[in-house]
């Protein structure tokens, strides 16, 4: 295996990537590529049959991920990654369905789908790359933008309360909730591995830098500035109450595994419909 690598001079992840499309379109310093690496690496380590893994993405910067991953990958309409994934799972319960999308796609446009997929406890692993803004459309204010953060549509600072994604997921019924930053590549990999192994709706939020838009408006002009901010301000607190893990503009980012519980999934309940008392 080592010799093969030496001979072709390819990146070891190229076998799971559509390598002809790399370099990808993400900006220099964008953290989504790191999350894709962590995901692919976790997928290889999980030992799942790769023919039975489907990756579903919505629209947006992170929505491009499905186009770069060389598995059964689907690029769906805006916000509809989760309903598509639900249908996929119902149609073929053998599949391991992973939704890989951004905060704008999953939480704002697809917000209702998100809470209902979590409520039903569909057996889906959701990886949400949170960059606090709508990147592809030009850096507008999103539902995760922290209070006082500047964006192109809030040039004097945001005045809306943002969503606390782990709290939203946990309250809606997710059985696994974790948050990491893209700097914690190895911990992200482990969390995604756990989410893939978990039966039920598992949710991993990964905070990623967006130097071109969000960072640029908020005094962090390069991806490295944002990574340094994560390095200095992220605090690992496993098992923290999800309601206490709000993100503020310059405050601490609490990361870790917040929820890991067992609960019958939608398919379990459907298949045992006669035996439920």
């Amino acid at each position: 295996m080592i010799d093969e690598q030496v001979l072709d001079g390819l990146h070891p992840m190229d076998k799971l990537l559509r390598a002809d499309r790399i370099p990808h379109i993400w900006c220099p310093g964008c953290g989504i590529g790191t999350v894709v690496y962590s995901f692919l690496s976790a997928l290889i380590k999980s030992g799942l049959d790769l023919d039975k893994v489907a990756v579903v993405s919505g629209i947006g910067c992170t929505g491009r991920a499905a186009g770069y991953i060389n598995l059964d990958s689907f690029h769906t309409t805006h916000g509809r990654a989760l309903p598509f994934a639900t249908g996929l799972k119902l149609g073929n319960p053998e599949l391991k369905v992973v939704v890989f999308s951004g905060d704008g796609d999953l939480i704002s446009i697809g917000g209702n789908h998100f809470i209902h997929a979590a409520r039903r406890n569909m057996d889906i692993a959701v990886i949400c790359v949170n960059n606090f803004t709508y990147g592809m459309t030009g850096g507008q204010l999103g539902p995760t933008t922290p209070i006082r953060a500047k964006t192109t549509t809030s040039p004097y600072g945001n005045t809306e309360h943002p969503f606390n994604l782990p709290y939203l997921a946990a309250a809606s019924g997710a059985v696994y909730v974790a948050r990491w930053t893209s700097l914690d590549a190895r911990r992200t990999e482990r969390a995604i591995g756990e989410a893939l192994a978990k039966k039920g709706f598992s949710f991993v939020e990964v905070i990623a830098p967006c130097p071109t838009l969000y960072g640029n408006m908020n005094k962090m002009k390069t991806g490295l500035d944002q990574m340094r901010f994560y390095e200095e301000n992220s605090v690992i607190r496993h098992g923290a109450e999800p309601k206490d893990v709000d993100i503020t503009l310059n405050g601490q980012i609490i990361v870790g595994k917040f929820v890991d519980i067992e609960k019958p999934t939608y398919l379990d309940l459907r298949d045992n419909i006669g035996s439920i008392v």
Binding site: I2, Q5, H11, I22, H24, G29, Y37, S38, L183
Partner: peptide, 16 residues
């Protein structure tokens, strides 16, 4: 292997 993991561009790797 941190360089390989953290590179968002799949542009660096190491051969053990």
């Amino acid at each position: 292997g941190l360089c390989q993991m953290i590179c968002p561009e799949f542009a660096i790797y190491h051969i053990v």
